[in-house]
């Protein structure tokens, strides 16, 4: 038994050696990037997890507190509010997907002026989020902004809405603005993937009498699976760390109701200099993000029967 195991180990080692000697140049090329990632990402990341177990004032010496930071966070009411806000805020990714998918399908049908329409769709994504946040903060300002100004002037609204004073409406505005700003990224990826679907597949579907919905479900969607998976995973990760527009529009309020975890992390680290606890918030945020991506991929695989596009 023991000799069988050592024999298998030997064979595996030889196989690795063969692969290495055959592809040494490829590995050599990958090595700098690998080192870069390990030194600049993985080491600080692991150090971050370690530091989340410390009380670490910015500029001061860390002291070990074990799970104290996590214990404090989960017993702190605003953190629970923040978790809820983060979960709701994560919906922006689905809204972005919905808008991007609809826009990509619509653009595919356009025969003339496609570039112009696509270009105009990308406009919001080409502007820095800080700029679009400023524009929307002005547009949606209850007293001075044009949107509520016109709505009340045209008597569509009896009076302006102070959306920032209520948690739900403040979150809705943030969801709207982030969706408006970032959906073109998904649109780009989905559009590119859509263009690569062979026309023959649609012709075949038509020959078999498939209607538009059936064609979409049986031809288009399975072919877009990889693109949607990539776009959604990337956007979930990116969206969860967006804070500029939240700070611009609501400053995390009212109360803590729009203080998503990234805002909480920013406040603890930059404004209060409590690095240990901000690392703990970061670890929770990371866990949530990975959780979202994992659940999404698993559900998507399950829904599409595990077919790879």
């Amino acid at each position: 038994m023991a000799s069988q195991t050592s024999h298998a180990l030997l064979r595996r080692t030889e196989r690795y050696r063969d692969v290495l000697s055959e592809n040494w140049f490829a590995y050599l090329l990958v090595l700098p990037v690998l080192l870069f990632l390990v030194l600049l990402m993985w080491v600080p990341f692991l150090q971050g997890i370690y530091m989340s177990l410390h009380n670490w004032p910015f500029g001061g010496d860390p002291s070990w507190v074990g799970l104290g930071n996590y214990e404090y966070l989960f017993g702190w009411q605003p953190f629970v509010t923040s978790l809820r806000a983060t979960l709701i805020f994560a919906l922006t990714t689905l809204f972005q997907l919905g808008v991007a998918l609809a826009a990509a399908l619509a653009v595919r049908e356009i025969r003339r002026g496609k570039s112009l329409v696509t270009g105009s769709f990308l406009l919001s994504y080409t502007l820095p989020p800080l700029v679009t946040g400023t524009i929307w903060a002005y547009m949606l300002e209850p007293d001075l902004g044009p949107i509520f100004g016109y709505l009340t002037q045209w008597e569509l609204l009896e009076e302006t809405i102070y959306w920032g004073s209520h948690g739900d409406s403040a979150l809705a505005v943030i969801l709207f603005v982030t969706t408006w700003t970032f959906w073109p990224f998904m649109f780009l990826i989905i559009s590119a993937s859509l263009e690569s679907i062979p026309e023959e597949m649609y012709e075949t579907a038509r020959m078999y009498g498939a209607n538009r919905v059936q064609t979409f479900l049986r031809v288009t969607l399975p072919q877009l699976k990889s693109a949607i998976l990539i776009a959604l995973s990337i956007r979930i990760i990116w969206n969860m760390t967006k804070i500029s527009q939240v700070l611009q529009l609501t400053n995390g309020g009212p109360g803590y109701e729009t203080s998503i975890l990234a805002v909480l992390l920013y406040r603890f680290s930059y404004e209060q200099g409590q690095m240990g606890i901000s690392y703990a918030v970061g670890v929770v945020l990371l866990t949530m993000t990975i959780g979202f991506v994992f659940v999404f991929i698993r559900e998507f695989e399950r829904a599409s029967g595990g077919d790879a596009a």
Binding site: P78, S165, G252, G253, P254, G255, Y256, S259, R267, E271, Q272
Partner: peptide, 22 residues
């Protein structure tokens, strides 16, 4: 040194909640 937390970060959201009537 902790005035930012004392005046704004911690007290601000809670006093805002009071103004809201929450």
């Amino acid at each position: 040194p902790g005035m930012n937390a004392i005046q704004y970060n911690i007290a601000g959201p809670l006093f805002q909640e009071a103004v809201r009537g929450e």
